[in-house]
Design a protein around this nucleic acid. Structure first.
Lengths: 124, 124
DNA sequence: AGCTGTGAAGAAGGCACCTTCTTGTAAGCT
DNA sequence: AGCTTACAAGAAGGTGCCTTCTTCACAGCT
C-alpha cells in the first residue's frame, strides 16, 4: 500500500504544523508572497515596495521562504549581480490565502483600530 | 457627502493596516479564532484544546483579540466564576481566512518540512 | 488554617524579532 | 586610491514574544 500524506494538527503542540503555521502567519511572509504572486521580482524592487522593512530583514525572510520551498531564488548576470525571486508551485497554493489575509486587514483596518480605541477608552 | 470607508495599504509602512496585519498574522490568533468559529468556548477549554500555550499567553491573546473587536468576553456566574469567549460579527468575517491558513499548514506540513530538510542538506 | 477550582496579571528571565551599523564580494566609474 | 551599485550576513543593541513562577480575588471543601 502506498503511503498517503497525512494531515497535521495545528492544535497539537508537538506536531510540526505548529512550526509551519508560525512560518506563514507572519506579516513579512504575507507581504512578500503577495508581491511574488504577480510574477518574479528582484530583491531591491521588493525592498522598495515593502516600506519599513530593512535589507537585513528582507534578506532573512526570503531565505526562510526559500528554505520552506515557497520561493525560489535566481541570480542574474547583471553588473552588479542582481537576484530575482519567484513564487514556487507550492507557494502558489498559498497565494490566495495570504492575499485574503492582507486584503481583510486592508478592508477592516478602520473597524479594528476603532474597536481598539473604544476598548482603550473604556479601560481608562 | 457621507464619508466612505477607505481601504488601507499593507505595503505602506505608516498605514495602520501594517499593525492590523501583524495582529492577525499570528499563530495564537489563528488557533483561537479557529476554535471560536464553531461557537462560544470557555477559557480553560481553549487552553486544553490549544496545546503548548501558557495560561499567561492565552489570556494575553484573548485580551488583544477582544481589544481588536474580533472576540467578545462574558463572565458566567458559576462557582468559581468562569469566562466564555465568542467570536464577534467582525471576527466572523475573518474566520474562513484564518481557517484556510491553518488548513494550508496542516495539509502542506510534510512538503514544507521536507523542503527545509533538503535545503539544510544542500547548505551543509 | 490548609487545599481545590477559575481567570487575570506582574515579575523574571530566556529567546526571537528587528533595526542599524558594518563588512564582505564583485564590477564599473572617477 | 576613492566612490557607486547589488545582495548577504555578522555584530550590537533594543524591543517584543513567551514561559514559568507567583500572587490576587472569590467560593467551596477538608
Amino acid at each position: 500500500m502506498t503511503s498517503v500524506p497525512r494531515n497535521g494538527n495545528a492544535y497539537a503542540d508537538t506536531c510540526p504544523t505548529r512550526m509551519v503555521l508560525d512560518r506563514i502567519a507572519d506579516k513579512w511572509a504575507v507581504l512578500v508572497l503577495g508581491l511574488l504572486g504577480d510574477g518574479p521580482v528582484r530583491f531591491n524592487q521588493l525592498r522598495r515596495q515593502i516600506e519599513g522593512i530593512s535589507q537585513k530583514m528582507l534578506s532573512q525572510t526570503l531565505k526562510s521562504l526559500e528554505r520552506d520551498g515557497l520561493v525560489s531564488r535566481r541570480a542574474i548576470a547583471t553588473v552588479p549581480v542582481t537576484v530575482e525571486y519567484s513564487i514556487t508551485p507550492l507557494g502558489q497554493t498559498l497565494s490566495a490565502t495570504v492575499d485574503n489575509l492582507r486584503i481583510w486587514a486592508e478592508t477592516h483596518m478602520e473597524q479594528v483600530t476603532q474597536s481598539q480605541q473604544q476598548y482603550d477608552a473604556a479601560a481608562a
